Each structure stands twice: as C-alpha cells, then as structure tokens.
Amino acid sequence: MDSNETDLKWFAIRVTYSREMALKGYLDQCGIESFIPMHYKEFIKRERKVRKLVPVIHNLVFVRLNREKMDEIKADISLKIPIRYIMNRERREPLVVPDRQMYSFIAVAGAYNEQVVYLDSNVLSLREGDRVRITGGVFAGVEGVFLRIKGDRRVVVSIEGVMAVATAFVHPSLIERVS
C-alpha cells in the first residue's frame, strides 16, 4: 500500500444484497485491512444441526484505508458490488471510526464467543456508565463503557451510529476506570 499509515482510517461501509463476504474477499486479495463482525448460527440442514459462521449484520463491512483510495475502490467495483459509506448525519461526511475504538471492537467481536452480546446502537445510551479499560484476561486492553446487561457486568464497545458489542462477564477486579 502506498499511503502513509497515519492517513489510514476505518470507514463503515454498506454493501447490497448480503455481498459483504464477496467485498471482504476482494479487499483481502488487494491486501486491504477489513473486518466483518461474525458469530456462529445454527441451521437445520438435511435433518441435522449445522453450525456456521455468519455476519452479525448483513451488508456491513469496516475498511481501513485513506479516503482517496476508498473512493477509488468504491468507483472500481461499483458495477460488481455497489458500496456506500455509512454517513455521520451531523457532519454529513462518511463515518470514521477511531483506530483505538475499532481495535477494541475487533478484540471483542472477533472472539466469536457465544457470550458476546451484540446491541443495536439505538437501544443503548452509552453516555451513562463509566469509561473503563480491561486489565486482564482475554479482553485485556479493551476500552469501553461498563454496563450491566442481562444481569452481568460487561464492557460495551460502541461504533457510534452503527452498533455496539458487549464482552462476556468481566470481573470488576480486571477493570480500571479511564478518565
């Protein structure tokens, strides 16, 4: 990749007709960092239970590029896979996810743990609760908001306006408040 590492940003992208895996394959071929939140889902196939890894939200892909290269890719493959930016409605520009927030999100969502709970961003008001960092365990280094969900204490990492993901139970001794 010919762009500076500092110019790279995480963009939230929408594709049509559940073609997020096709876009991810294209991006992987090009050596472009991307992420699709996935989870295991059980299906009945020929009277047998089959467990398959599928996207949590169809049509959603996070891509790490600079804006110019993202616009080039958007134009290059628009005939095969139409893609659009998810927009920040207040600023009327593409939604950009900060690196630290995205890597915390990937650390939790990329675990494919059945105890991870995905939440719609409209359901939660993440301004309530303390900003925290997990200091130990599987999610060490993850920063988010400490909330009680489904009776357990969890750390929620939110991509504003898109979605949020909550860790499995985190013992309070493994959490420190971030100012």
Rank of each mutant, 00 (worst) to 15 (best):
M1A: 14
S3G: 14
S3L: 12
T6G: 15
F11G: 02
A12S: 00
T16K: 15
A22K: 12
A22E: 10
K24H: 13
G25S: 13
G25F: 10
G25W: 11
C30N: 13
S34C: 08
F35Y: 04
I36W: 03
P37A: 02
M38F: 02
E42N: 12
R48I: 06
V50D: 10
K52Q: 13
V54I: 12
H58Y: 13
N59R: 02
L60E: 02
V61A: 01
F62I: 00
R64N: 10
N66H: 10
N66W: 06
E68W: 13
K69H: 10
D71I: 13
D76M: 12
D76P: 15
I81A: 03
P82M: 01
I83L: 11
Y85N: 03
M87C: 04
N88R: 02
R91H: 09
R92L: 14
P98H: 07
D99H: 10
D99N: 12
R100Y: 06
Q101F: 07
Q101M: 12
V108N: 09
Y112T: 15
L119I: 01
G129A: 08
R133P: 13
I134V: 11
T135E: 10
G141F: 03
V142M: 04
F146M: 11
I149G: 01
I149A: 04
R154H: 02
V156S: 08
V157E: 03
E160N: 09
E160Q: 11
M163N: 05
A166F: 01
H171T: 12
S179T: 14
